[in-house]
């Protein structure tokens, strides 16, 4: 029983982090139809910002808002300098540009941050959780809490704040929102900024208790099955799919893989699930079915 608790708990924590990365992708996709392949590098950049501020010896209450602000500016700048110039083009073309952005960011991170990993440790109270012989160490518990709080804050922001409502309106239809007097371009910049903040928090959760390095962006790949499973336009879908994928990974690693005698089964299990779901619901669990008039 303790073993099951450990597997499920670890899966949920891992899934919350995956879910948060996926939310960052969904935010941009919803607003512009662009799939941001640079999300992994956004995560890395966020963790690097945190490391830089922390290594300056600043207190945590300065470091946290500071690195989130840096991430927001970073995301906004990417949008203003690159994406904004491509507005009106096919979203697929802009999606391809994000692959280029990803490569450039890897190079810049390597150039400025260097090749060696650096330790990232959130100095927070010890929340180590012991249930029977199952144990969840403090940094993991905090990673789960950070991811969950960020998701709740984002959902509340989207639902109740004026800016959130404007963002939803723009996401529904850019043309209609412009007609209604909404500055859609500004909203898009803000969306990229918020997406970068969400990715930065994910990056912090990934690096916390371990290390950040310029090539950490590979973590973005973990969000691909999540976002496709949950549906590209659904924030709750991303969250739920994140948890599902986290659970599938841990259970297949510790139950199904050994039962089937397949080492490495964990790596492919999310894609098997994804394949099955997409055969039944091509738009994902919570995605919108696209009805086209002919």
């Amino acid at each position: 029983m303790d073993y099951l608790i450990q597997v499920i708990g670890s899966g949920i924590i891992q899934g919350l982090v995956y879910g948060l990365i996926a939310v960052s992708l969904v935010l941009i996709y919803k607003s512009s139809g662009v799939f941001n392949f640079a999300v992994g590098e956004f995560c890395t950049a966020g963790a690097v910002f945190f490391f830089i501020l922390q290594s300056l010896g600043l207190p945590l209450w300065v470091v946290i808002p500071g690195f989130l602000l840096m991430a927001a500016v970073f995301g906004g700048l990417i949008e203003k300098l690159i994406i904004d110039r491509l507005i009106g083009r096919d979203p697929m073309a802009i999606t391809l540009v994000t692959i280029g952005i990803s490569s450039i960011l890897v190079g810049l991170l390597l150039f400025f941050f260097g090749a060696n990993p650096e330790i990232v440790e959130l100095p927070l109270p010890d929340l180590t959780l012991e249930i029977g012989s199952a144990l969840f160490i403090s940094s993991q518990v905090w990673n789960g809490i950070i991811a969950a709080l960020a998701m709740i804050a984002l959902l509340l922001f989207y639902k109740f704040s004026t800016m959130g409502i404007l963002m939803r309106a723009t996401a529904d239809s850019q043309v209609k929102s412009i007609v209604l007097g909404i500055n859609a371009r500004r909203i898009l910049t803000i969306t990229w900024g918020i997406s970068a903040v969400v990715a930065a928090l994910s990056g912090l959760a990934v690096a916390n208790g371990s290390a950040v390095s310029y090539d950490m962006g590979i973590v973005g790949l973990a969000a691909l099955p999540v976002v496709l499973l949950g549906g590209l336009e659904s924030i709750p879908g991303a969250i739920i799919a994140g948890i599902i994928i986290g659970l599938v990974e841990t259970t297949s690693n510790f139950y199904f893989g050994p039962w089937l005698g397949l080492t490495g089964f964990q790596a492919i299990s999310p894609y098997i699930l994804l394949l099955v779901v997409l055969l039944i619901r091509p738009e994902g669990l919570f995605g919108q079915e696209l009805i086209e008039r002919v």
């Binding site: 073993y3 450990q6 924590i13 891992q14 144990l135 993991q140 990934v206 690693n253």
Partner: peptide, 16 residues
Amino acid sequence: EPFSPKAQTFAPGFLK
């Protein structure tokens, strides 16, 4: 016992 390079935790293995 194998572990995944992507693993956020090694805890289930440690329990074993």
